[in-house]
């Protein structure tokens, strides 16, 4: 069971992710912007960050750089509506990509993959 930080500016998306992840037994914290994200990461340890690429007033990719710089040990799954986020090389800093879908299975698989990889390494 892991502790996961969900970063998304859309409440319904946060609701969806929290619902499916807690159902799998994970502990979830929701935040909606960059400031809250960095505060949360400073405050408590997380096993994983699920990060939306398009946050309302800021770029998820900028935030990704910040997270990698300050907390390089925390893996990040980048989430976006579409594959077009790959246009930016910074997305490559993430551990995984995930395209948003109403079918949560792809996301859950990525979460398990990243978490197990991390467990194997540590």
């Amino acid at each position: 069971m892991a502790k996961i930080l969900i970063v998304d500016d859309e409440p319904s998306i946060r609701l969806l992710y929290t619902t499916v992840l807690t159902e799998k037994g994970h502990e979830v914290v929701e935040v909606e912007n960059g400031r809250q994200t960095l505060e949360a990461l400073e405050r408590e340890p997380f096993d994983l960050v699920i990060l939306d690429i398009r946050l309302r007033a800021e770029s998820g990719l900028d935030l990704l750089q910040e997270i990698v710089a300050r907390h390089p040990q925390v893996p990040v799954i980048l989430c976006s509506a579409y594959v077009s986020f790959q246009d930016d090389y910074t997305s490559w800093l993430a551990h995984s990509y995930c395209v948003k879908s109403s079918d949560p299975r792809a996301l859950l698989e990525e979460v398990e993959r990243v978490l197990s990889g991390r467990a194997a390494r540590s």
Partner: peptide, 17 residues
């Protein structure tokens, strides 16, 4: 499409749940 997709994902995902 990006703007529309987020709500659709939420609607579909929550309905599925």
């Amino acid at each position: 499409t990006h703007t529309i997709k987020n709500p659709v994902v939420a609607i579909g995902g929550l309905a599925r749940h």
